[in-house]
Design a protein around this nucleic acid. Structure first.
Lengths: 326, 326
DNA sequence: TCATTTTGTGAAATCGTTTTCACTTCTGTA
DNA sequence: TACAGAAGTGAAAACGATTTCACAAAATGA
């Protein structure tokens, strides 16, 4: 069923049908007859053919590192909400933490002529920058600061600083740290730096052996807590770069019947749904993930409507959730 | 940059370039020169134009009720893995539990000419059936049995039966139930029926006031546990239709300092990541969510390749996770 | 009444591919 | 030598929409 057939059935030209579908510069009489035929046939215009002429797809490509993650799925939910409302569709690409796949997906997005791209950034390399700019498609970065695009992110540094100061205030002195790769600027570097600065402000020592770097998975929390305690048996608290890592740590401590927070206090980042249900409940940082997603989608849509508009950089705050593990 | 420009630059016809891109019925000499030009220019063919001719988009539409859900995001991860591997892209539509939106999204998918559709079913109405069949696009249903399409689902009934029998075996007699709407056949009806049958096999009473129906959210678990205990103060266990609901129940019980499992035992369904970390850890049912997603994607791709192949109906088993809350 | 503007309309070009078809040019065989 | 078949090629016709352009009819103004 195509536009010419509809036109024939309605006794008008294809151009008239197109006009009906779009602006509608058309006599009332023809509008009625076209409407009737379209209703009867259930005709839906081919978006591919439309794209071919108009160069717009109403498609937004979204690249994420992992969909089955508490924080990321919240961002995606926020994105989806706004896109749907604005008549866009989401093309979702999940790299499963394989950073190099991001570039492949960018090529696919280009092929599908997406109107815009949202990159939920983990590691932004020079190559990313080059490819993204060459793409000539509006894009934004979420979760990381970025100087060549609009970006929406969290105050990871201040959050880590605040959280660590809170731990110190609670009386903890020998605090360990479980982090992630420094290639991830927001989570790997800023959170760690916030931790370090809070410690040094109080002139607290940080022996190298009390810090560990690992993956984003729970196993990392589990294994690195084991190693941490093997090397520094006198720790009285551990700050973990994510809630997931904190869960791994808690799992290990539970197995050893080490009491939280009396023997060792724990804190995480992300305020995952679990944190308030755990018992003891997890002290953590609430970030505005869903808002980050929905705001990001809005910014991108603005950018698509007005490509020459200047880049924006929006930093969301956070909330310290004072729960029971610290 | 289009195929004609590439052709001109390589000194061949557009047809030759197209042949290079596809089957490659072409002299070695031209292949080389075309390859060179494509590499230099970074040319990527327009998938819309391709679709216009070939009627295939390499796009799969996926409809889900909620992305920020532990179980669903796992299914989506499984789907994404296979689709990417097979060169497909995922068009994701999140209804946020608004069932009527599913039909809208189906129309959008049709407009975008997706090659196939995956419906992560909650409530399948007669209208769904009618619309899906009229669509004339291969589709499959995940999470629900369905007689007019290939479907992949879990043995919800036997899981509920087994879990409840286990609770009884553990010595619980006055067991309450927190469920969801019966319109959701798998989660609402089958799990409840499994519970009821296990109870009646042991001749255990189920007063109407010991069962509650609510939403999929944690608040439901919290609020309905409150009501349940107000009416039936002598319950010694509660079976919850999902882990999320169980978490709500646990939250309420913790607030009242009711000891789990000594005062009241709890069980859920889904084996969410949290369940093993909670303390006490949550007794639950492990379903093969990720596998369901990846297998579903495979079945759909087979169906696309061979549309006349008969429908398949695949039921995955489960695993009873005997943790500490029951 | 006549000139001018407004309004409504369809023919045809266009977007960027794929694919059919007809036409060379080879290759190998009788 | 002649001829069948294979191999390689490009012109041109799709695919299904939008949009420009030209033109007719109707409305307006003098």
């Amino acid at each position: 069923m195509n536009i010419s057939q509809i036109a024939k059935m309605a006794g008008v030209s294809p151009a008239a049908v197109s006009r009906y579908l779009n602006h509608g510069y058309l006599s009332e009489e023809k509008k009625v007859s076209i409407e009737k035929v379209i209703k009867e046939t259930g005709y839906i215009p081919s978006s591919q053919a439309q794209t071919l002429r108009t160069k717009t797809t109403k498609l937004i490509g979204v690249i994420i590192p992992k969909i089955d993650s508490d924080s990321i799925s919240q961002v995606v939910a926020g994105i989806g909400e706004v896109l749907t409302k604005q008549g866009y569709q989401m093309l979702l690409a999940n790299t499963e933490n394989q950073n190099d796949r991001e570039l492949e997906f960018l090529a696919t997005f280009q092929q599908h002529m997406v109107d815009g791209i949202i990159l939920l950034g983990t590691i932004l390399t020079a190559k990313h920058k080059a490819v993204l700019k060459a793409l000539n498609i509006p894009f934004i970065v979420l979760g990381q600061a970025c100087d060549y695009a609009s970006c929406i992110y969290h105050d990871d540094y201040l959050a880590a600083l605040t959280l660590t100061e809170y731990m110190i205030e609670k009386g903890h002195r020998r605090i360990g740290y479980l982090g992630v790769t420094e290639k991830d600027y927001a989570v790997g570097q800023l959170r760690k730096q916030g931790f370090l600065d809070a410690m040094s402000r109080q002139n607290l020592e940080i022996p190298a052996s009390s810090m560990r770097i690992g993956s984003f998975y729970m196993e990392n929390g589990y294994e690195n807590t084991k190693r941490l305690l093997a090397d520094c048996s006198d720790l009285d608290a551990i700050v973990c770069a994510t809630d997931t890592i904190a869960l791994g740590a808690i799992k290990y401590l539970n197995q050893l019947s080490i009491k939280i927070p009396n023997d060792i206090a724990i804190a995480g980042f992300g305020d995952s749904r679990i944190s308030s249900i755990l018992s003891p409940s997890l002290t953590t940082i609430h970030f505005y993930y869903r808002e980050c997603g929905s705001e990001g989608a809005k910014v991108l849509i603005d950018k698509i409507a007005n490509p020459s508009s200047p880049n924006k950089s929006l930093k969301y705050g956070f909330e310290l959730i004072k729960n029971e593990t610290a």
